[in-house]
């Protein structure tokens, strides 16, 4: 039985790997964990119920900041999930291109006779090898660059979350958060 006269409640589905960080974050906003349970559908998700006094000071500011924090957290999740999106598509494209060249080379060898087809198939195989090597190197560079960008973005998001939590903690006088 919830006591809505004295308390506000918050129900959140959170990623397990971030549960400790989130407990601290929400703690800064005056929320205390009431219960936590495994999600029925996903094994990386926890369902957590929080509670805080209804008549908490600076409630409006805290609610607004909490939305900022949740937005920053989800931006972080998005950055982590799609950190190497461009690399993925580049590698996929490179694989398709290389496979196309190899297939063309095999077709030339199997279905055409004579020196020109042999030369063309050798060219196709050579192109496939060089394309694989070149695109591999480019993809690796792209991966590294994307990794750096993602790390930078993640760092900014984490700093922002930390900053928001500090400001919230100052409002709730919950310094241990």
């Amino acid at each position: 039985m919830r006591d809505y006269e004295r308390y506000d409640y918050l129900y959140a589905a959170i990623k397990k790997r971030s549960s400790v960080r989130l407990k601290d974050c929400y703690g800064a906003f005056g929320w205390e964990v009431l219960s936590r349970a495994e999600d029925d559908r996903y094994d990386d998700v926890l369902n957590v119920a929080f509670r805080r006094p209804h008549a908490i000071e600076h409630k409006d500011e805290l609610q607004l900041m909490q939305v900022y924090m949740e937005s920053a957290l989800n931006d972080l999740g998005k950055t982590e999930r799609y950190a190497h999106k461009k690399t993925f598509f580049a590698v996929l494209g490179a694989c398709l291109f290389t496979m196309g060249l190899i297939a063309a080379g095999i077709c030339l060898l199997l279905f055409f006779n004579g020196t020109p087809s042999l030369i063309c198939s050798v060219v196709a195989f050579s192109l496939a090898v060089s394309a694989a090597v070149t695109l591999g190197i480019l993809s690796h560079k792209l991966y590294k660059r994307e990794d750096e960008v993602a790390k930078e973005k993640a760092k900014r998001a984490i700093d922002e979350i930390g900053d928001i939590c500090k400001r919230a903690a100052a409002l709730t006088e919950n310094d241990d958060a």
């Binding site: 918050l10 129900y11 959140a12 589905a13 959170i14 990623k15 971030s18 989130l22 495994e38 999600d39 029925d40 559908r41 996903y42 094994d43 990386d44 998700v45 369902n47 949740e70 957290l73 989800n74 972080l76 999740g77 998005k78 982590e80 999930r81 799609y82």
Partner: peptide
């Protein structure tokens, strides 16, 4: 049963239930 549960496809770290 727990093994049958998959990973959440949602990238969001936190989702308010309401």
């Amino acid at each position: 049963a727990r093994r049958e549960r998959g990973r959440s496809p949602d990238y969001r770290i936190v989702k308010i239930r309401t």
